[in-house]
Design a protein around this nucleic acid. Structure first.
Lengths: 209, 209, 209, 209
DNA sequence: TATGAATGAGCGTTCATTCAT
DNA sequence: AATGAATGAACGCTCATTCAT
C-alpha cells in the first residue's frame, strides 16, 4: 500500500518492453506476434504498452531501430584503419563483424527485416541505408583504394565486397535459421578466421594457381 | 450472360492458386497474407481454395514445397562433374546457381523460409534437409576430395563451402530485400563470374600473395 | 454406356433421399445436418437433391410430413371403436401406439419437431394439428362420452388424456434420447400393457383404495 | 460522452450471458443460435463472450449445466418423505414437479437436450445421470417399498414410475412446443392435481372396476 | 437426368486498441 | 502510471446453392 511495488524503475520500462518485443517479434514475425505475450514477457499489462508506444507498428519500428542502431557505430570505426595494408583491414573487418554477431542479435534482426520487408519496406530501407549499404560502400571504397595501390586484383569493387562479406551473412543466417532445425553448429569466429585467410589468397592451393 | 461466371479448370487450378499464393506469401509473409487476396489474384473465389488445400497452412506448405522441389534436382547434377579440376567444378556450380536464381523464385522462397522459420520450423527443416544441407555437404565433399588431391588449400571444407556460396546467398537476398528499397541493382551472374574467379585465386593481387 | 447405371428407379429417388435425410436430420438436427452427408447416404450427388427439393428447408419439411402423415391415418381407426367399453378402447389405443412406435420413427420425428420447433414453428403446428391435437382430442372425446355413460370418473377429459398418453410419449423419448447415452432399455410394448392396466384401475392396491 | 460506453461488471457478466444464451439456444437450438444475438441480448459485445467462455460449445454446456443443476437438489428432498403413505408421497412429488416446472425453465432445457442429443450426447447423459435417471430411480424405489407394504399393486416399479411421471413430461413439452403454435393452454398444476388423484385410484369409475 | 466444381454470404473466433477504474 | 475488462473490425473457414458440363 504504502510503497507501491511498481514504482521502481519506471524509466526502464521502454527498454524492458523492447527486449521482450524483440524476442517475440523474432520468434513469430510481426503479424503473428501477440501483444499479450510481449506484455507478459515484459512483466507489464497490455494497456501499459500503449503508454510508451503508439501502436504495434510503433513498437516494432522502435525494436528494430534500437537494435540496428548500435551496429552502425561499431562499423564506422573500421574505416579509420584504411592506411593499413588491405589484408589487415579485411581481417579486422571480418573479425569485428564476427564479434558483433556474437554479442548482438544480428541474426534476429536480419530475420525480422527480411521476413517483414514486404510489410515494412522502410525498415528494409533503414537497414540498407544505415547498415548494409554503408558497410558494402565502405568495403568497396577500401577495395577501390587498395586496387589503386595495386594491392587488390581488378574487378568490380562492390562485387568484391560481396565476396568478402557474403559468407559472414550466410553464417549468421545459418545460425539463426538452420541450426535450430538440425543444421550442424557453426562457429562464426572460426568462419571469419578461415574465410579471411582463404579469400585473400584464394581457395586453390598455391601450386595450382 | 455472355461469359460464364466460371469455368471448369480442375487441372490447372492448383498451380494457378500456388502461383498467386507464392506472390502474396512472399510479399506479406504467412500471417499477413489474406486468403481473399490470394483468391482474387488466382481468379477464383475464396471457397475454391478449400477445394484444393485443407487450410491456409496447407497452402503455404504446398507453395514452399513446390517451389523448393525443382531446385533440389538441379543441384544434384553438379556432383557428377567431380572428376573435373576443382576450379572448373566451382565455376560450374556458381554459374548454375546464378542461372537457377534468375529463373526460379529462389529469393522469394528464401525470404518466406527465413521470415516464417519461427512459425514453421518444418519448412526451415525442409529447406535445410533438401536444399541448403545437401548443397553445402556436396560442396564440402568436393572440396575435401580436391584437398586430398592437393588442389585446394587446407582448412575446414565446410567453412570453405561457406566462402564459396555465401556471396551468392547474399546476392540473392540483396536483390530480394534491399534492391526494392533503393539498393543498387545487382547482377547475380556477374557476381557469380567475378566471385568464382576471385575466390579461387584470392582477392589479393598476385604480387601481394 | 449403353444402359446407364442410374436410369433404374428414377422415381424412387425422392423416397431414398427422404430416408437418408430423415437419418441425418434426426442425428444432427436441421442446422447441423449437411446436405453433403444426406447426398452421400442417399447415394446421389449434392446437385441431385435440388432436382427434387427446392432447398434444404423444403427437404426438411418433406421429411417431416412424409413421416408424420402415415401416423395420422393409423389413429383415425381407433375412433371407430367407440362403442366398445372404454377400457377396451384405451387398451387398443395404447397398444396401437406402441406398435406404431415400434415400426415408425416416431421418436426420431418427435426429436426433430421438438428440437426445431423454434426455427420451424409450422412443423410443430403440423404435428399439433395433425397428430398430437387430434389424438388428444379424440381421446378426450372418447373419455367424455365414457364419463357420460358413467364409465370414467369425473375430471377434465383432456387432462385424463394426458394421464393416458403421457407415459407413452415419455417412453418414446426415453428410448430415443436417454437409452443411447446409458439409460436402461425400455420395452415400449410392455410399458403400454402395464400402463393400460394400471391407469384404468389405479396404482394403489385394491385394499388401499 | 454522458454514459460510458461500458461498465465493469465482471461478477454479473457470466450470469447475464448465460441467461441470454439460454433464451437464444432454446429458441434456435445450438447450431442456429448466433453469438451476435446472444451478445446483443446480454448487452455485451461478441468479443466479451470469449472472456468468460472458451467457445460456443463451452457456453452451451455451461447454460445447460447451470440450468439443470438447481433441479437436482429440489428432487432429492422428496425421498425423505418415504415413511408417509405412498399416495401422499406421489401427491407431493407431482405437485413439487409442477411447482418446479413453473419456476424453472424445465421445458426449455428439455427442448435443448432433446434437440441436441445427437450433437451433444454428454448433455443427454448429464440429464440422464443427474435428472431423469435419479428421478425415475427414486420413484421406482419408493414404489417398490410401497409394493412390499402392500400399498401399490404388482408390476414393474420402473414402468409404474413412467405411469406416474409421463403425463408431467408430456405437459411440459406441450407447453413448450405445442402451446406456442396454437395448442390449447395447459395448466401444469391442474394436471398434477388431477393426474395424481386419477392415477392412484384409476381412470375407471369405481362402479366399473 | 445427373454431376461436382465453383461460388460467396455468413459465422465463429481472434486480437489490437480503448478506457473506466 | 498502471491495469485489464470490454470492444469491434477483420479474417479463416464452412456450406447451401448454382450452373457448366
Amino acid at each position: 500500500m504504502q510503497s507501491p511495488r511498481w514504482q521502481r524503475r519506471a524509466e526502464d520500462r521502454p527498454r524492458e518492453i523492447c527486449a521482450a518485443a524483440l524476442d517475440v517479434f523474432t520468434e513469430k514475425g510481426f503479424a503473428a506476434a501477440r501483444l499479450d505475450e510481449i506484455a507478459k514477457r515484459a512483466g507489464v499489462s497490455k494497456g501499459t504498452l500503449y503508454l510508451y508506444f503508439k501502436d504495434k507498428e510503433d513498437l516494432f519500428r522502435a525494436v528494430v531501430r534500437d537494435t540496428v542502431a548500435p551496429n552502425v557505430g561499431a562499423l564506422r570505426d573500421a574505416a579509420m584503419a584504411s592506411e593499413l595494408p588491405f589484408a589487415a583491414v579485411a581481417n579486422m573487418f571480418l573479425s569485428r563483424f564476427a564479434d558483433l554477431a556474437q554479442r548482438l542479435p544480428v541474426g534476429a534482426v536480419a530475420k525480422m527485416v527480411i521476413g517483414e520487408s514486404g510489410n515494412f519496406p522502410e525498415l528494409a530501407k533503414v537497414w540498407h541505408d544505415q547498415v548494409a549499404g554503408p558497410s558494402i560502400g565502405l568495403l568497396a571504397g577500401l577495395i577501390e583504394k587498395a586496387q589503386a595501390k595495386g594491392e587488390v586484383r581488378a574487378g568490380d569493387p562492390r562485387l568484391h565486397a560481396f565476396t568478402l562479406m557474403g559468407p559472414m551473412l550466410m553464417g549468421v543466417i545459418w545460425r539463426e535459421i538452420l541450426q535450430p532445425v538440425g543444421g550442424a553448429p557453426l562457429d562464426i569466429e572460426a568462419l571469419a578466421r578461415q574465410h579471411s585467410q582463404t579469400v585473400l589468397t584464394g581457395l586453390l592451393a598455391e601450386s595450382e594457381q
